[in-house]
Write a protein that binds this DNA or RNA. Sequence first.
DNA 1: CAAAAGTACTTGCACCGTCAAGTAAATAAT
DNA 2: ATTATTTACTTGACGGTGCAAGTACTTTTG
Lengths: 153, 153
Amino acid sequence: MPQDGRPLRPLDETEEVLVRALGEVMTGLPRVVDADMVRDARLPLSEYTALMLLSEAPRRRMRMSELAVAGNLSLSGMTRVVARLEKQGFIERARCEEDLRGWNAVLTDDGFARLEEAWPAHLASIRRHVLDKLAGHDLAALAAALRQVETRL
Amino acid sequence: MPQDGRPLRPLDETEEVLVRALGEVMTGLPRVVDADMVRDARLPLSEYTALMLLSEAPRRRMRMSELAVAGNLSLSGMTRVVARLEKQGFIERARCEEDLRGWNAVLTDDGFARLEEAWPAHLASIRRHVLDKLAGHDLAALAAALRQVETRL
DNA sequence: CAAAAGTACTTGCACCGTCAAGTAAATAAT
DNA sequence: ATTATTTACTTGACGGTGCAAGTACTTTTG
């Protein structure tokens, strides 16, 4: 429901421009980066992200639900990403000892190697489409602003 | 190909933070806004965007290819969006007179009404998730930065 | 002006992600 | 303790999007 306490002030000029720009970025950038990853590293962005998150986690493992939240996917979505990675041998699954309902996704050595192989493509993509274009802008301020934006369901 | 002239300098701290924040926003925000639109206006974001673009176009019509570019979708993706909207009576299709290969998507009166009905939900969603959170930030600078980012395939 | 090449769009197929329903285990209630 | 409820995750059905191939028209070329 459009919480109608106040009468929904329309966008002013500045806001309008920002919203358009943000719309562009939010619909276009994921596709562009994902396309780069698939082309240059044969690894979709969603899978790359999962591997990366695991590589940074203690003991290179995470509960499915944690991983889903961290990767900004639904739990079922993450189940499928992990299933694909498991089939390729990059992840193994281990029942969670302290709660038998739960599963850990565990990064294998092959998975770690795959990640090391893939990250340059990700870095290059981000540099090409984002950082190179932002020369002269205040990156810290931009990051601070973006971190305020609400992105969780 | 990760164009390897230079050896791909890794991200510094500031860049790292920015890239994470941008990743969050770019994967999360479209889902959040789309979910709002579906829930509050029963109109997915992609369809809303198409209607909006048409409403601003001269004679409320656009060539399919124009519309695809403007909406940041592939041509085939836009074909399907338009097909859905046509089925609901919000868009009609008219052969392009000066080039019989081409089609115009034309916003109908029903479509315009639908858009007027739906935009408050979009506005509310954007205010809620984005603009409200950005109080105190320099919106113009943010917009200028985002507009530099490359988002076209 | 006929044939070849290019352009505008659509369609078949495959993939990915969501929701809703299902399973299994933990926790709460009686 | 048994049952009911909640939690963690998986699976089935579905919708949306891209790519590649197909169709129809246009432009170029010899």
